[in-house]
């Protein structure tokens, strides 16, 4: 993907749910401060890949390297301590906690200060400042997604894994959420975005991976990928036949 040393490298990664193999030798590279998008239909293995990188799901074979160090055997808290934070699919806010507490808990494993704190999160998503005392789950879907992103940023990650952050949101809300991505990247945090909206993925990412049935079926820079090739890789059928 690039000539320099990648910040995050996934090499021939496999993962299983019991006897069911969900990932088959997946490769992925992310440059420092970069943004890659993973696209694919439901059941393609996108979320599984994110969960495996984050240490939530145990990796099978293969490696996950962060700055050249293997992290695929580490548990989720350890992976986070190394600088990989995840925004889980469906937001998964803590209903008994306020917006501010939901954000503060993101700094649970943080040692010392960093670029991201409550103030800078509120600068990124000003509406959260007004709602800071409200229960996290009393917000709209878009605002909840902002809290989920802010919560992950509170750990000052080097890599932010965003799993389906536009799922179930209105287009205007999705635009507001994605408007934050460049600012997050400028702060030095690299991003991996799982996205079903192909147009959105091509717009924000430097590099796109298309997955199907646990394998990467297509990858490349957005400008190098034709709509037909993406269509074929996404649905697994020839564009001509579809």
């Amino acid at each position: 993907m690039s000539e320099g040393e990648p910040l995050l490298a996934v090499e021939a990664l496999t993962a299983h749910y019991g006897d069911f193999q969900a990932l088959f030798g997946v490769d992925l590279h992310l440059d420092p401060g970069g943004c890659v998008a993973i696209i694919g239909a439901n059941g393609a293995g996108k979320t599984t890949l994110m969960r495996t990188i984050a240490g939530i799901l145990r990796a099978g074979a293969g490696r996950v390297l962060l700055d050249g160090a293997e992290i695929q055997r580490l548990a989720a808290p350890e992976v986070l301590r190394h600088g990989v934070a995840m925004v889980p699919e469906g937001r998964k806010l803590f209903p008994s906690l306020s917006v501010e507490e939901n954000l503060l808990i993101g700094a649970h494993e943080r040692k010392g200060d960093g670029r991201w704190n409550l103030e800078t999160i509120y600068d990124l998503f000003p509406i959260l400042r007004e709602r800071r005392r409200n229960p996290g789950t009393a917000l709209s879907g878009g605002q909840q997604q902002m809290v989920a992103i802010g919560r992950a940023l509170m750990s000052n990650p080097r890599v932010l894994l965003c799993d389906e952050i536009s799922l179930g949101l209105a287009p205007v809300v999705i635009r507001d959420i994605y408007a934050a991505v460049p600012r997050i990247r400028e702060s030095g945090t690299a991003i991996v975005v799982v996205e079903q909206d192909i147009g959105q993925a091509l717009k924000i990412a430097d590099y796109v991976y298309c997955m199907m049935e646990g394998r990467v079926t297509l990858s490349g820079r957005p400008s190098d990928l034709s709509r037909e090739a993406i269509h074929d890789a996404y649905f697994g059928v020839s564009h001509d036949l579809a």
């Binding site: 939530i56 989720a76 986070l80 995840m86 998964k92 803590f94 209903p95 008994s96 808990i105 993101g106």
Partner: peptide, 11 residues
Amino acid sequence: DNLEAARSVGI
């Protein structure tokens, strides 16, 4: 509140 989300924030 949420086991998986708790794991994702390093708990």
